[in-house]
Amino acid sequence: MGYFGDIYDVSKSILTGMGVTLKYFVNPKTITTVQYKRPERRGEGELHEVPHLPDMHKGIHYLETEECIMCWQCANICPVDCIVIEGTRDGEVEGAYQGNRANLTRFTIDYSLCIYCNLCCEACPETSTCIHMGKEFDFTSYDQGSLVKNLLTDEKFTKEDLRFTTNAQSKIEELAEEKKRKAAEAQAARKAAAAAKKAAAAKKAASTPDTPAKKD
């Protein structure tokens, strides 16, 4: 190529490149980015009005509380363990959210951990299908603590909520104790009944000791 050929080629390719950039510079139609509308600049109702969000978009979860049966499937499959469920299926708790035969005092997701893998929604059993991924994605905050979302109220999880759940915890434990006691009672009753039955059977058997022998 040689010295002059080199200079010629380089200048030529530089001009070719400059042609490309000039083409974009003079043509405003080529601008592909859009101005993001920050939440504080949006109106009250426009929370989800973000253009071109596909139906499949995996945003922040929402929960159909009345469908939830508190089966812990979602929390169990979660690869990063970001779901906390508290509540009871043993009975009423004051102030708790009513699920499907469950009383939920807490259902939170820590979005500082969540990886939006959708496995919780996949794992949700067919009888309930209560947890879904919504379209909202703007969940920024200035501290990590406020990234915990309360799915029961669809708001950020606050310290007041924490107080409620700790208070409810004792009630839940009480209910669990009661259930255990009842179960134990029932067990004892069943055992007693079984023992009585057995005793009766034994009595019966004793009364007819030769019956099996008759078969031989």
């Binding site: 596909p54 499949m56 995996k58 959708n118 991924m133």
Partner: peptide, 30 residues
């Protein structure tokens, strides 16, 4: 970005898709 848009329509996510799973793909295409 255009490819990621396509992926978002398939899988709902733009970077970590978890889309291909043992047995096929997680969701059907539109």
């Amino acid at each position: 970005e255009r490819i990621l848009d396509l992926f978002e329509e398939m899988s709902g996510q733009r970077l970590n898709y978890s889309y291909i799973v043992p047995g096929g793909v997680l969701y059907d295409w539109p």
